[in-house]
Design a protein around this nucleic acid. Structure first.
Length: 331
DNA sequence: TCTCCTCGAGATCT
DNA sequence: CTCGAGGAGA
């Protein structure tokens, strides 16, 4: 019996928008505010029905772009009620293929500003690829991200909450032309707070550590070279962790062997670990009391009842060889 | 100690 | 997506 396995680890998830810009946290005077209304939340199935942009120069509105878009699909009553955009309005509007060139032209190379701006950027990105074959790659600033850092104690950080808490005039929410103005005012309001030294700039400009880390190869980055596995394979469905140096092959090759047989590898011993494979760690001067951290962790997990075995390199390779030999006989 | 990484929780957009 | 907690390795 052969079955097919589909892996979907974090690191293996393909980069759907490779040219997408970076999320910046900074306060500038020249940028473009964007907001889109759509038929729903899912970029894979939903379509844009309104796009609004404001060009900001020297902190002031200097230009405006606003259009409805014909989504060429049904707008649900919920969305019509939310945004005020009916099927009649949308049907009279140009399609996205017609609108996108003007939008890209209007935006130019500006840094974009938006509230949860990933949402808007993703929709425009996908539309730009589809319509003109070139992706929206501008960097962007997210007032949601800034607000969460600045006001962690607030019960929520919705755009309407920011507007209310800042005491700014509230127009019609969920119309993108009104919402770009809301977002613009909130951003400028926060910028003013910082200029007035009412907020410590370092509180928000400090870059979280994880943002400066580059992604390196880890156990999860080793991909299977085939997709069909035998459930009777001793490695199948098991999670292996290695400690110390192996004699027979390099660790990454042993990990490759595991995933090619339907198993998984971990970088450290966790509650998911089924086997800890001991290599030679005697030459590691960090090991003081004869046991690596992984070994000690594994021993304590076994004591607490986890289905985990500590095995030698020979046992590790032996279990596969035994299985291969049996399979050879039956074939 | 410092660096780098993984995992899980929580929230926002229409 | 973003961040914090916590682990491993040096």
């Amino acid at each position: 019996m052969w079955i097919r396995i589909g892996f979907s680890s974090h690191s293996e998830r393909e980069n759907k928008r490779p040219k997408k810009g970076r999320s910046l946290i900074k306060f500038i005077d020249d940028y473009t505010v964007i907001d889109v209304e759509t038929t729903g939340r899912d970029p894979n199935v939903d379509r844009i029905i309104q796009i609004s942009c404001l060009t900001i120069r020297n902190g002031k509105i200097s230009d405006q772009f606003d259009t409805y878009v014909n989504p060429e699909m049904e707008i649900s009553p919920f969305i019509s009620n939310l945004t005020g955009i009916t099927n009649e309005i949308a049907a009279a509007a140009p399609t996205i293929n017609f609108v996108i060139p003007s939008v890209m032209d209007f935006i130019g190379d500006d840094i974009l500003l938006g509230h949860n701006v990933h949402f808007d950027v993703n929709f425009i990105y996908d539309a730009s690829v589809k319509s003109i074959g070139s992706a929206l790659s501008n960097d962007f600033i997210d007032t949601l991200r800034i607000a969460r850092r600045l006001f962690p104690d607030w019960p929520d950080h919705r755009l309407s909450t920011l507007v209310t808490n800042f005491g700014l005039p509230a127009e019609n929410f969920h119309n993108s032309l009104d919402d770009v103005i809301h977002t613009y005012r909130c951003y400028e309001y926060i910028k003013q707070l910082i200029q007035d030294k009412q907020i410590d700039k370092h509180q928000i400009s400090a870059i979280p550590k994880r943002n400066i880390y580059s992604h390196k190869t880890s156990a999860k980055d080793i991909k299977a070279t085939c997709c069909d596995f035998d459930p009777d394979d001793p490695y199948f469905g098991k999670t292996f962790v290695f400690t110390g140096n192996l004699v027979r092959m390099e660790r990454k090759d042993a990990m490759q062997l595991v995933v090619d047989h339907g198993g998984q590898c971990g970088d450290n011993v966790t509650q998911k670990t089924n086997y800890l494979v001991l290599g030679d760690y005697s030459r590691n001067w960090l090991v003081k009391d004869g046991k690596t951290t992984k070994l000690k962790k594994a021993e304590s997990l076994i004591l607490s009842g986890q289905d985990l075995e500590i095995i030698s390199e020979d046992v590790f390779f032996g279990m596969l060889e035994e299985y291969e030999a049996l399979k050879g006989q039956s074939d």
